[in-house]
Amino acid sequence: MAFTPTKETYSGKVYPVTIGTGDKAVTFGGENVLPFNSFEGAAPNAPVIAYEIQDVPPTDWPENVQKPFAAVSDDPVKWAKYCQDELKAKAIALRLVGTHPDRENRTPEEASKTVKDVLAAINIPLIILGSNHAEKDSQVLIAVAEAAKDKNCIIGKAQEANYKTIAAAAMANNHKLIAMSELDINLSKQLNILITQMGFEKERLITDPMCSALGYGLEYTYSVMERIRLAALTQNDMTMQPPMLGDVGMYVWKIKETQAPESDLPHWGPAEERGIAWEAVTATALLIAGAELLIMRHPKAVEAVEKTIEELI
């Protein structure tokens, strides 16, 4: 019995999305095959990893992931430049966590100033994220979208409760938009439809089906992503064809496995290596499931995932 490979040709493809301006702009998505299956189709762009920084010092991050940024994280501008110049980041994700009413409760004006300062200091693309407070985000993201007008950023995250204002702001200022729903392929599809019905171009969307950390529901994110990608390719479902985001760092660096000291749990091994591995394995799993854009924190985790991507393409 002679072997003939079963190759698949799909009717659909993932939209390519370009962010940033000038020669540092990056493009991800654009493939017409399952992740890293370039043996049967085109996968013109490698996945992109953005370094996460925030507008206030990362006192809420575990010590092992604060450490690499200790000299720069008191100032988002220094922090962004460090990621760009020293860590060779391809993109930066600025999370405006200081605008959360339970945190520093910074105003939309303060947030806009931070965004402008960071944009002035870097030439790589910027992803601008709110604090995940639905009401406050709609005020903050309107202001920062305008402050970053025409810089071709990604604004996020638009959710069911606030998508109208945020999508309108991203549209008016020529940005891309993250649409996030909670671990359900149908909710994800529905939100993409609602946003495009406002006149927002589907080619400017990025789907965030919600990340979960290794050991903490990763299999749900993994399968939702895999199903979204299959719907995009096999059913040519246009509402499922935006590239996908894995917002990895935030979900990984709050669980026990990335924090508990070895003295408490000797059979888990050293906390620093364990935390880095946790972030890198979570990220790798999501790449295999279909994520094209990742937001990560630890430089060593980013470096290892980038090496793995090199080997996969």
Binding site: L214, Y222, E257, H267, W268, G269, P270, E273, R274, A277, W278, A280, V281, T284, A285, I288, A289, A304, V305, K307, T308, E311, L312
Partner: peptide, 28 residues
Amino acid sequence: ALLAAVGIAKYSSIIVVNSVEKWKNLAL
């Protein structure tokens, strides 16, 4: 560890590795 993660997701039945540190085992 990351390659092993790829193998776990994509149909390996046996993965042979160089080293089995505790942190790596827990993640894999």
